[in-house]
């Protein structure tokens, strides 16, 4: 890591530090119920981060990021039940999900499927997962010792200490694990987009033809960032099924797929912290909406999505950054002009 990259990553470290402070302060001041809720929100934030990486930086319009999230959760749960411990189950979840994403991505990117089709295909894969796993309710659908459970899902074994499989973590400890995972994933993603690999990905997003003419195989780079994004989503899935305690096929439904897109749209494509912030904000908005019955969740989220696409297409974080930059640039100019005006006046 050279000094230039360190300078580039200064905001990333700043937000990571804020996250660290939050990680150690929150359990002291917040109630256990809030902490358990927060764990779920953190898991979703990891999912949002993965989509922010591949859509915002890779330019890959993946509508089915939630498929990797859910697949990670299912693989973790099934392997944890079969292995009797969580450590290797987490590794399995990330590896299997990345392998699945790589296989799917091979067909998509090497078939040169364009971005709009890509969105539809990934969404379709998600919905097919949804309808497939819903049907697995009979006792004949099992992998090893784990029954798939159909509509009701499977209850997930909690994470245990790596060296002692009978020492399970309590919900308040899972919070620390989740927060640490979010920070690590965030710093990793922030580092990745500043490496040569990340820069080539951005170049491909901006102009695929030009990047190819410069000698980069855009298919390989897209496949790479897509696979990495799926791995991060799988980590989110592992945290999610730990926070909730079980995993059901509902994770694959259209509503959740849309939610992931909405976080990134609202937070802003091309930033990593924006979608994470938007996830927390919308998580608390939807929880608040769940408490009343006048406005339906779908209605509000649909309206938010339409309003953002039509009026704030860049999302919150880039709009704020643009605004701040514009002020910074214009401020000295205005002073200079005023001085100039005064000078003209005296002449």
């Amino acid at each position: 890591m050279n000094s230039g990259m360190l300078r580039q990553m200064r905001p990333t470290f700043f937000y990571a530090l804020l996250g660290l402070v939050f990680m150690f302060v929150a359990p002291q001041v917040l109630q256990l119920f809030t902490i358990i809720n927060l764990t779920t929100a953190i898991a979703l934030a990891v999912l949002a981060l993965s989509l922010a990486l591949i859509w915002g930086y890779g330019g890959i319009l993946c509508f089915g990021q939630v498929a990797f999230f859910g697949l990670g959760a299912y693989v973790y749960t099934i392997s944890a039940i079969n292995f009797g411990g969580s450590t290797w189950a987490i590794v399995m979840a990330v590896l299997v999900t990345s392998a699945f994403a790589a296989a799917l991505g091979y067909f998509i990117f090497f078939g040169r499927v364009s971005d709009v089709y890509l969105g539809v295909i990934t969404l379709t894969v998600t919905l097919i997962f949804f309808s497939l796993i819903r049907r697995t309710s009979g006792p004949e659908y099992k992998i090893g010792n784990a029954l798939l459970g159909g509509f009701n899902g499977v209850s997930s074994p909690p994470i245990n200490l790596p060296w002692n499989t009978s020492q399970f973590l309590f919900p308040e400890h899972v919070f620390y694990v989740a927060m640490a995972a979010l920070i690590i994933c965030y710093v990793f993603a922030g580092w990745l987009v500043n490496t040569k690999f990340g820069r080539v990905c951005v170049a491909i997003r901006e102009n695929e033809l030009r990047a190819e003419l410069l000698g980069y195989d855009s298919r390989l780079y897209k496949l790479g960032i897509f696979t990495i994004g799926a791995g991060i989503a799988a980590i989110g899935g592992v945290l999610f099924c730990n926070g909730v305690g079980r995993i059901t096929p509902d994770v694959f439904n259209l509503y959740n797929a849309a939610l992931t897109i909405i976080w990134v749209i609202v937070g802003g494509r091309g930033t990593l912290i924006g979608p994470i912030g938007a996830t927390f904000a919308l998580f608390y908005l939807t929880s608040a909406l769940g408490g009343q019955s006048v406005l339906n969740n779908n209605l509000v989220l649909g309206a938010i999505l339409i309003v953002f696409v039509l009026l704030v297409p860049k999302g919150v974080a880039p709009t704020v950054i643009d605004w701040v930059n514009a002020r910074r640039k214009t401020a000295p100019v205005r002073v200079r002009r005023r001085r100039g005006a005064r000078a003209e006046g005296t002449e």
């Binding site: 319009l61 971005d115 969105g119 749209i265 969740n297 779908n298 509000v300 989220l301 649909g302 999505l305």
Partner: peptide, 16 residues
């Protein structure tokens, strides 16, 4: 892409 997203918003809106 924006049409895709806007119609998705519409879909949620209609369900709601």
């Amino acid at each position: 892409v924006d049409t895709l997203l806007a119609t998705w918003g519409l879909s949620l809106l209609l369900v709601g």
